[in-house]
Structures are given as structure tokens and as C-alpha cells.
Amino acid sequence: MPPDLPPIPPEKPLPSDCCESGCDRCVFDIYAEELAYYEQQLAAWRERNPGRDPEQVR
């Protein structure tokens, strides 16, 4: 069975990554969605791995 590794957080976009043209799905919107998914996955990982520090597992 493969090891249960914690999820990897999404990379935050730089301010210069946004073109500021009002895109329907701005890079910051996508980042917010990815961050919410990451937080859900991290919470599930912590439930499966109580007491473990995700930073120490990687």
C-alpha cells in the first residue's frame, strides 16, 4: 500500500499573473477554488493521521 502523503498546497499566483481585464475565471478565483479543495483534503488527511505534522511527512 502506498504511503498516505498529505496534499500539496496550491501555488499562490503573483499579482502580475492577473491581467486585470475582468476575466470570468481570474487566476485568483482559480487559486481560491484550489485552496478550498486543498483545505478539505488536508482536513481529511489529518483525520486519517492524527498527531502527524504534514510539514514533517513530505
Rank of each mutant, 00 (worst) to 15 (best):
Y38F: 15
P10C: 08
R58L: 11
Y31W: 12
P10V: 06
P15T: 06
Q40T: 14
Y38H: 09
V27W: 02
A44S: 08
E34K: 15
Q40E: 15
G22Y: 05
L14N: 15
Y31N: 04
P3D: 02
Q40K: 14
P9N: 08
E55K: 02
P3C: 05
C19W: 02
D17M: 14
A43T: 10
E55H: 01
Y31V: 06
C18E: 05
D29I: 11
P50M: 12
D24K: 11
P7H: 13
R48Y: 01
P10R: 04
S16E: 15
L14K: 15
D53G: 09
Q41W: 02
Y37A: 14
G51N: 09
L42W: 02
P3I: 07
I8D: 07
E20I: 04
Y31T: 08
R46P: 03
Y31S: 05
P9G: 03
E55M: 02
D17C: 15
M1K: 09
N49P: 01
C19L: 10
P6T: 13
D24N: 13
G51M: 10
R52N: 03
Y37S: 10
E33V: 10
R52A: 00
D17H: 12
S21T: 05
C23D: 07
P3A: 11
R46F: 09
P15W: 05
E39M: 12
L5Y: 15
L35S: 06
S21K: 03
R52H: 04
D53Q: 01
V57K: 01
A43L: 13
